[in-house]
């Protein structure tokens, strides 16, 4: 085969060279850039501890934290406390999700439901759920039920808000379609309302998960005898900053893992939207 050159292409060589403009954006991403900041903090912390600039009573050395975590795992305290905390968070989260969705459906699908429910829930939203603790302790004591109810109260509000909003913003054209194909009330809820409100619900779930851990931290530091918060609270009385740090790391890991899990669910459940985004 012989290569032929189009006459028009030659002109490109004759034009003046292109001036390279200075880039205005931040430029190319740095590899593993996200790890740099935390790594720097760790290095400074290590240097501070090694040189004695950081008092052990203020903040334990990183290696002490690691060995303490090892000891806590070896004697089983970490696992049992972690299990108790996770259980509390999940029971509270589960009940809160059920309550939030049920209320969102009642209030979103009927005007009477909206009139009766939306007001009180908006008022509840204005009151931080942790502010209800004194009342909850009086009503429920300091046992497990108080802890779970506190978590539940923090969880159901974002679930309700976002599900209700998702439900109310379903395109009215789909409602019209449901009428023309003669969907029953139940089929309408199942085929149109729930899937239509799902993006809102999942957004609410992400807030709810964060809220559940937050409430957990607080309730576990009040008259608890088990859980990560109790472990940390006990460490405070003995001045064991290493154990407190282990607890903080645990909370961080739990928060990250659960948020990742919700995002995974989001990607799976909303795969019909991914076709648009990708």
């Amino acid at each position: 085969m012989s290569a032929t050159t189009l006459p028009g292409l030659r002109t490109a060589e004759q034009t003046t060279p292109v001036v390279r403009r200075r880039r205005l954006g931040p430029g190319k991403p740095i590899r593993f850039g996200a790890a740099l900041g935390p790594l720097l903090v760790l290095v400074l912390w290590s240097i501070g501890s090694a040189t004695g600039r950081l008092d052990q009573r203020v903040l334990s050395a990183p290696w002490t934290v690691v060995t303490t975590a090892g000891d806590l795992i070896a004697d089983g305290r970490l696992q049992s406390n972690l299990w108790t905390s996770t259980q509390r968070a999940f029971i509270g989260l589960g009940l809160g999700v059920v309550l939030g969705v049920a209320l969102a459906l009642l209030s979103g699908l009927s005007r009477i439901g909206e009139a009766l429910l939306d007001g009180p829930i908006q008022i509840k939203r204005a009151i931080p759920s942790l502010a209800l603790l004194p009342l909850l302790i009086l009503w429920l004591g300091i046992g497990e039920s108080m802890k779970i109810v506190t978590i539940l109260l923090g969880v159901f509000v974002p679930i309700y808000l976002h599900t209700h909003n998702g439900l109310r913003t379903i395109d009215s054209r789909y409602v019209e379609l449901a009428q023309t194909v003669g969907l029953s009330q139940w089929d309408f809820i199942r085929r149109v309302v729930l899937p239509g409100a799902l993006p809102g619900f999942l957004l609410g779930l992400r807030f709810a998960v964060t809220g559940a851990w937050l409430s957990l931290v607080v309730v576990e530091q009040i008259n608890s005898t088990s859980g990560i918060g109790y472990m940390m609270e006990l460490a405070r009385t003995y001045g064991q900053t290493d154990i407190i740090i282990v607890g903080l790391v645990l909370y961080g890991v739990l928060g990250l893992l659960s948020d990742g899990a919700v995002r995974l669910i989001q990607r799976r459940a909303l795969s019909w939207r991914r076709t648009l985004a990708s």
């Binding site: 023309t180 194909v181 969907l183 029953s184 149109v192 899937p195 239509g196 019909w272």
Partner: peptide, 22 residues
């Protein structure tokens, strides 16, 4: 049956599920 100007398919339902909706 009604056919609208927009196809009015439920975006979260597969094609066949849209056809047999209800």
């Amino acid at each position: 049956s009604v056919v609208f100007q927009d196809s009015r398919l439920l975006p979260w339902a597969k094609v066949l599920d849209n056809v047999v909706l209800g």
